[in-house]
Lab assay of single mutants.
Amino acid sequence: TPAEQLLSKCPWKEYKSDSGKPYYYNSQTKESRWAKPKELEDLEGYQNTIV
Protein backbone atom coordinates (compact mmCIF):
# COMPACT_ATOMS: atom_id res chain seq x y z
CA THR A 1 0.00 0.00 0.00
CA PRO A 2 1.12 3.62 -0.36
CA ALA A 3 1.24 4.04 3.42
CA GLU A 4 3.47 0.98 3.84
CA GLN A 5 5.79 2.35 1.16
CA LEU A 6 6.07 5.64 3.06
CA LEU A 7 6.84 3.81 6.31
CA SER A 8 9.46 1.64 4.61
CA LYS A 9 11.26 4.79 3.39
CA CYS A 10 11.26 6.37 6.85
CA PRO A 11 14.76 6.18 8.40
CA TRP A 12 13.24 5.57 11.87
CA LYS A 13 12.57 1.94 12.80
CA GLU A 14 11.31 0.42 16.04
CA TYR A 15 13.42 -2.21 17.80
CA LYS A 16 13.25 -3.92 21.20
CA SER A 17 15.94 -3.65 23.85
CA ASP A 18 17.18 -6.74 25.69
CA SER A 19 14.61 -5.99 28.40
CA GLY A 20 11.83 -5.80 25.80
CA LYS A 21 11.41 -2.02 25.90
CA PRO A 22 10.86 -0.46 22.47
CA TYR A 23 13.38 2.06 21.17
CA TYR A 24 13.80 3.84 17.87
CA TYR A 25 16.83 4.01 15.59
CA ASN A 26 17.46 6.31 12.63
CA SER A 27 19.59 4.53 10.04
CA GLN A 28 20.59 7.80 8.33
CA THR A 29 21.77 9.76 11.37
CA LYS A 30 22.70 6.73 13.54
CA GLU A 31 20.62 8.32 16.35
CA SER A 32 18.67 6.16 18.80
CA ARG A 33 16.06 7.25 21.31
CA TRP A 34 13.44 5.85 23.66
CA ALA A 35 10.66 8.25 22.64
CA LYS A 36 8.92 7.64 19.32
CA PRO A 37 10.04 10.28 16.80
CA LYS A 38 7.31 12.63 15.58
CA GLU A 39 8.10 11.75 11.96
CA LEU A 40 7.30 8.09 12.66
CA GLU A 41 4.17 8.97 14.67
CA ASP A 42 2.90 11.12 11.81
CA LEU A 43 3.47 8.37 9.24
CA GLU A 44 1.74 5.77 11.43
CA GLY A 45 -1.17 8.15 11.93
CA TYR A 46 -1.38 8.66 8.17
CA GLN A 47 -1.33 4.90 7.65
CA ASN A 48 -4.21 4.43 10.11
CA THR A 49 -6.38 7.00 8.32
CA ILE A 50 -5.97 5.20 4.99
CA VAL A 51 -6.77 1.67 6.19
Rank of each mutant, 00 (worst) to 15 (best):
L43Q: 11
S27K: 13
E4N: 15
A35M: 11
E14V: 03
S19H: 04
T29H: 09
N48C: 03
E41S: 11
T1Q: 03
K38S: 09
W12Y: 01
P22A: 09
Y46C: 10
V51A: 14
Q47Y: 13
I50T: 15
P2E: 15
L43A: 11
K13L: 09
P11Q: 09
N26L: 00
T49N: 06
E14I: 14
D42L: 09
N26S: 00
K9N: 08
E41A: 07
Q5C: 05
K38A: 06
K21T: 08
A3V: 13
S17I: 03
E44H: 08
P37V: 02
K38L: 05
S32Y: 12
P37Y: 00
Q47R: 05
L40S: 03
E44G: 10
N26Q: 03
P11N: 02
P11Y: 13
P11E: 00
P22E: 04
Q28W: 09
P11W: 05
E4A: 05
N26E: 00
P11I: 12
K30G: 12
W12F: 09
D18S: 14
W12K: 08
P37F: 00
G20Y: 01
G20D: 01
Y25A: 01
K21H: 05
D18G: 08
Y46E: 13
S32E: 07
G20I: 00
S32N: 04
D42T: 11
E44S: 07
K36I: 01
N48S: 08
Y15I: 13
A3L: 12
S8R: 11
G45W: 04
S8H: 07
R33G: 05
K36Q: 04
Y25Q: 03
Y25V: 09
R33C: 13
K9L: 06
K36S: 03
C10H: 14
W12I: 07
L43G: 11
N48V: 00
Q28P: 00
P11F: 13
P11G: 09
T49C: 13
I50K: 15
E41K: 04
K38Y: 05
P22T: 11
Y15E: 12
A35Y: 04
A3K: 15
L43T: 10
K36H: 04
S32P: 09
K30M: 02
A3E: 14
K21A: 09
K30F: 04
L40F: 12
Q47S: 05
I50N: 15
G20N: 01
W34Y: 11
G20S: 03
Y15D: 02
N48T: 10
Y23A: 04
I50A: 14
K9I: 07
E31R: 01
S27C: 13
T1G: 01
G45R: 13
K36W: 03
T29L: 02
P22I: 12
Y25H: 11
I50D: 11
N48I: 00
S19N: 07
D18M: 10
E4W: 05
Y23K: 04
K30R: 09
S32C: 06
G20W: 00
E44I: 06
Q47D: 06
E44F: 00
P2I: 15
E31I: 02
G45T: 12
S8G: 06
Q28A: 09
L7E: 13
W12N: 04
Y46Q: 10
P11R: 05
T1E: 00
Y25F: 06
Y23L: 04
K9A: 15
V51L: 11
A3G: 09
Y46L: 11
W34N: 14
K21S: 05
D18P: 13
W12C: 00
W12D: 13
L7W: 14
S19V: 06
K21F: 07
G20Q: 02
